[in-house]
Design a protein around this nucleic acid. Structure first.
Lengths: 209, 209
DNA sequence: TCTTGTGAAGTTATTCACAGCG
DNA sequence: CGCTGTGAATAACTTCACAAGA
């Protein structure tokens, strides 16, 4: 199979959402045109994207929703079991993420939560015991958790990341407002909430001129 | 001035972070090479990006941090006053965002918060009174708030967006796990937390094969 | 000598446009 | 006829590589 472009991969998760929606609307098939309306990018692009993972559209009809959904789930590895996720930092944001129901719906289970604050350690959050950040490497290793979310202050994010990586984590979603350095083979995705806002304000400001 | 590519704009906020960092490290000038190390993209790219907003690097020396920072702040419209932001949905995530200190640091003020739950309306969150979602259009209009963050359940996100737009909001940062439709002239940026995770899991899964 | 600014080349992503299938 | 799959064209973005400034 041909290598799938990064840009396409970023869109795949959105396809899953749109497919679920189309299904709910009572359809068995969707055309690229239909998906285009739901997603906001061109039908040509959708056809090209979907072609990277096989050719199973039906001319004149579109794509079979069930089949396509299954194919995408396989690709993300969420067809068989949910991915375990570790969550570090039980402040405002961390707590919100721990309770966030969306993860479960999309193939992820928050399997362990950590904080360094003695007052929080041992408490539970939605039946999950908050563990000491000092045991991160051993817990991650023992339970083979491949994904972690960092929601600590910027000051401890790198240190936490190092511990996670020591335990064997392969991917990190970082909400701390700082860049994290990781060795080759560990993928880090940074989500900085104020950066998103700044981006928007650029366009807002440009318009005023 | 030449049109600035979208990709460049996405990087500008990161430049501001890196500049602040470089300044803290005690520098007055930074080279594209230095920024490159801090940010993880190439020095050539950095020079090209910065050229879109003027040519004020000094050969042999680099860019004057203060000057460049000022130039970027102007561009984002955060040099004079902070942007007012409205926040709708005071659930887990909304609450966390309302308390999030990062916004203030980067030129944004949470100026109004809304929820539709009677039990929450009238309560305060960090000195801010939670208002009824029914008054969204009037509050937005009266206080001329240009930016909104939606942190409601998916089911009410579109309706909330419509009210915000009715009030005159020009940009929306949407955390509800659903796509929002907005008329021409209103910019929506969707941040779907489980989409970010899914993306990561794609690479994780690919590696196993 | 160090580092910018920038043409030119290279790469990646998107759209066009249409033959061909059901 | 509607819609896919895909070459070919176009556009967007990134890197190369080097002349010239301090």
């Amino acid at each position: 199979m041909m290598k799938i472009p990064e840009a396409t991969i970023r869109r795949f998760s959105m396809y899953m959402r749109a497919l679920a929606q189309a299904k709910e609307d009572g359809n068995d098939f969707v055309s690229s045109r239909d998906l285009s309306k739901r997603l906001g990018f061109s039908d040509a692009q959708i056809r090209r994207d979907l072609n990277y993972i096989g050719t199973f559209g039906r001319a004149g009809k579109g794509y079979k929703i069930d089949f396509l959904t299954k194919r995408l789930s396989e690709l993300f590895g969420i067809d068989k079991k949910a991915w375990d996720v570790a969550l570090v930092g039980m402040g405002n944001l961390g707590g919100a993420l721990a309770r966030y129901k969306g993860f479960g719906k999309h193939g992820f289970t928050v399997a362990a939560v950590f904080d360094s604050d003695e007052k929080k350690i041992g408490k539970t959050i939605d039946t999950l015991r908050i563990e000491d950040t000092r045991v991160i490497p051993s817990v991650i290793r023992r339970r083979k958790i491949p994904i972690a979310i960092i929601a600590t202050p910027a000051s401890s994010a790198q240190q936490v990341a190092d511990e996670l990586i020591k335990g064997g984590v392969k991917t990190i979603l970082n909400f701390a407002p700082t860049r994290i350095y990781a060795p080759e083979g560990v993928r880090v995705k940074n989500v900085d909430l104020s950066i998103e806002l700044e981006n928007l304000s650029f366009y807002l400001n440009a318009k005023k001129k």
